[in-house]
Design a protein around this nucleic acid. Structure first.
Lengths: 127, 127
DNA sequence: TGTCATGGTTACATTTTCGTTACTACTTAT
DNA sequence: ATAAGTAGTAACGAAAATGTAACCATGACA
């Protein structure tokens, strides 16, 4: 058995999807923007564990993928508002289905646990 | 605006889902196992760019997450067969929806390109 | 007796992703 | 004159993920 050498030019569409909306922070960004348009600072407050550098990077990436829209107001101090595009809004039901699936698995595995209630509260909010 | 310090015990269910089925290789593993149960060596042939070390790691992880089943035959040379569990099979329609969504975005962006046909062929197969 | 095949494992190196800290430009309020 | 607030950026470093190359145990087969 020798190596297959037919390189796929772009990754498979599912891998592609993970590039668009996966990673450590993009799900949170989508989550908070889906509820409400947000300014940079507020987004950083809502997702405090991300560094501002990485938040900027992720937002720029999502902007160039046309998943979010960046609206800059010509004011001072500067104001920038981020919102989801239609493309991004279309994927939300799919993400919710994914969340429900993983939540079901999680519940099956962890029958007891002190953190369980907190997790469930958080998930109810999310799902 | 100070830092929010309420740590979430486990990540949000969507982030959790990405741990289960995301990453560089798990989508491919799911894809090939969904078509047909596979032995370790065949899987490595089908996904030639993964190293055997990482393939082992990913398979072990998915096994402990109960997404795949590992069946070892007592033969020589050894034979091991991997298959998807019911849990994993449940997520496939969701993954397909995700793939269609990202494929649609991809098509909108790339109107021309030489690789396009190859990509589409690959995707048709995938979707 | 020694080579082959399978399904790995181990130690180490590299790449990719993410974080820390300090800094900037602009304008209004004190 | 200077401090404060917003939305960043730049240089550097740490951590996480992945890759490379060599090795192992088993039994069949020549």
């Amino acid at each position: 058995m020798t190596k297959k050498k037919t390189k796929i030019p772009n990754a498979c569409p599912i891998v592609n999807a993970f590039h668009l909306i996966g990673g450590k922070w993009k799900p949170y960004i989508i989550y908070y923007l889906q509820k409400k348009n947000q300014r940079f600072g507020k987004l950083h407050f809502l997702i405090p564990d991300i560094s501002r550098k990485v938040l900027t990077e992720q937002l720029r990436e999502m902007e160039s993928d046309e998943l979010i829209h960046r609206k800059k107001f010509d004011e001072s101090p500067p104001r920038v508002e981020y919102s989801l595009t239609e493309k991004a809004k279309e994927v939300i039901p799919i993400l919710e289905a994914l969340g429900e699936w993983s939540f079901k698995i999680h519940k099956e595995k962890m029958t007891e646990s002190l953190d369980e209630e907190i997790y469930i509260d958080y998930c109810q909010d999310y799902l």
